[in-house]
Design a protein around this nucleic acid. Structure first.
Lengths: 199, 199, 199, 199
DNA sequence: GAATAAGCGAGACGGTACGTCCCGTCTTACT
DNA sequence: AGTAAGACGGGACGTACCGTCTCGCTTATTC
């Protein structure tokens, strides 16, 4: 089973691919996204600019691919959220962890860059949803479904809506820096969601 | 009554100011934000580039000012939301109207541009909150407070959290284009919020 | 009397023009012509690349203009060759001086570069002839005409042909490095020309 | 009898060699020399770039080799100029023929390219003289020597100088396009040379 | 006749210069 | 004094080739 595109320069290809991703992540983490240039990525990766342009059409696409490659689960095993039986406790734990991730400046810059890109490019947005957001959402939905089956959520509860109610306020507060991402806030979101969707 | 800046050039100043804002809004509405340039705004407004740079430090600031000027309530009268006494109906009406606004492509582009800027620039974000978001939020909060006083919401309800639960999912769905912004969705958000915060 | 092309930024313009010419001459003199780049000229001149491209269409044109500017007689006074009455002595003197000029490595590189350009671009060749070659040729022709009137050259002698016979072998020997450019050679050219065109 | 370089791939080698030369000549004849690229030669010849770089160090060298291969006398027989006993007539004939060769656009481009290369690269210049120029010059010199022995040229005449006087003006007029390469001009050169070097 | 290894076509690679675009500043002529 | 116009120094863009490298395939010889 060979590629139809010609000789398989796969070793060099893979090496440069990883170098490009590493350089991209480093640069996006250490300076504002708009000041990252394709030339700088190439130089840091020890790669010609053409090697980047041959594979991706724009800076956005490279950055996006670099973040995807970082986040993707390579061995196909699916994510699962903790399930102790105590829904409120489990959700509060997970949301506090999420809020903490956003506190890291590098991660913050990376995700802001990613968010800007998917905001302006529907094609990237679609790929983002398929490859990153959906697997994560599915894990969250699975936890809610388990709670629903245990009678902790209403039988008719719209679990997707419940997830929106949980996560959208957190995301928005982070994106607009409109308030602290602390445990009090995430806990109150969990409580509100439970009041809305309990039986 | 002259300005403290010297002889009275205020008429010219005001004329060019309005021309710049009009040109900015037109350009941002008709093409991707990143392709709008200060040079193009100046040319369209029939103004020298320096006239823009003398007043604002960057493209973002001009765009932001143009949007502020558009949205601000010039005569100081504060916004109010409808209050028929039926909280659910009033909120559903308002949220459907909000969702419809987002459907307009020009408005969509403008708000995405604005959102990108405030996402990356905390100073702009602060100004945005003070001058645009807070007045609107205050109007919404006032409506909820009125309902709370009428006993339609719990006495202890956190009204800011309630607003987040109502609006953040709507905003996120629009920003990420993760689903239709239809009445079914906005209505279900109102219902969820009411379940969570009713007495 | 103003330029029709807009505001007269003539001071800056002239300063950058001279800086570009100086940088060009320095670079062409110190390295092979093909390794001189427009970017390097701009950097050395402390000028943006666009300032060069705004004025000349290509590297060749800049180099050519820089050499023209160097060689042109700014105050309109015409060249004259020595005229002692002894034609052979005068010509031998002039040709030895010409041969010595070619011995300077910087000058050599500059003239080779110029020669390559006019060899490949008829438009440049025409300009070269009008502005550099013809004035010089006219001076030489005038010396021969003076000799002709003194009866030292045949009345019917084709003076242009005589000039070709004098200078073309010198030029070719230099261009192809096919032999030494010494006094013996230039003197023998003068002698041959005199034998061919004396009465 | 095998080459020292290993197994005898000489047939393939020779085929690709000829393909490279043909492609090179075609490309140099049909477009400006500076726009001919090694990649284009390789593609036109149906050959990998490495096959070219393995054999020649640069584009110049390939072009030069292609022209040498074209012009060289493969069977070792030496050139001879016509010798009817009438020196003036013989030389005028030969020079008219030379002038006509230069009129062919393809030939013109080829020779200009060759000239540019040998102008800038002394090593190529040396090879050019040894393998192309000298055999031709020797033939011309032989014709003059024959005339000298017949008493048609002075016994002391410097035949190399005579050749320079004949050919350099023709070459220079072609190179700089400074006048028509017609019979009147070539004839007048022959006449001038004869006046200068006759007994 | 199959195994071996040299050389080939193809073309991706790291790198450099290209010529263009736009930035934010500066200069000029005009009002 | 402040403006419209636009040239300027600077720097990133995305492209074209350079000369090198790696790959799989073709050949021709060797066992």
């Amino acid at each position: 089973m060979s590629h139809p595109t010609g000789p398989d320069h796969s070793r060099r290809k893979e090496r440069s691919r990883q170098a490009i991703f590493a350089a991209t992540r480093a640069l996006v983490a250490e300076q504002p996204y708009s000041e990252v240039t394709v030339g700088a990525i190439a130089a840091r990766a020890g790669v010609g600019k053409q090697t980047i342009y041959r594979r991706w059409p724009s800076k956005s696409a490279v950055v996006f691919a670099a973040l995807l490659a970082l986040s993707e689960n390579p061995d196909g095993q699916s994510l699962t959220l903790p399930d102790t039986g105590d829904l409120a406790a489990d959700l509060k734990l997970v949301m506090r962890a999420t809020a903490e991730e956003f506190a890291d400046p590098s991660f913050d810059r990376l995700i802001r860059a990613l968010n800007t890109e998917i905001t302006h490019d529907p094609a990237l947005a679609a790929e983002y949803h398929t490859r990153l957001a959906q697997p994560l959402e599915e894990a969250k939905r699975a936890r809610l479904r388990s709670a629903q089956e245990a009678g902790q959520l209403g039988a008719e509860a719209d679990l997707d809506l419940a997830l929106d109610v949980l996560y959208a306020p957190l995301f928005q507060r982070w994106l607009h820096r409109s308030g602290p991402l602390d445990a009090a806030y995430t806990d109150s979101l969990v409580d509100a969601m439970l009041r809305a969707f309990s039986p």
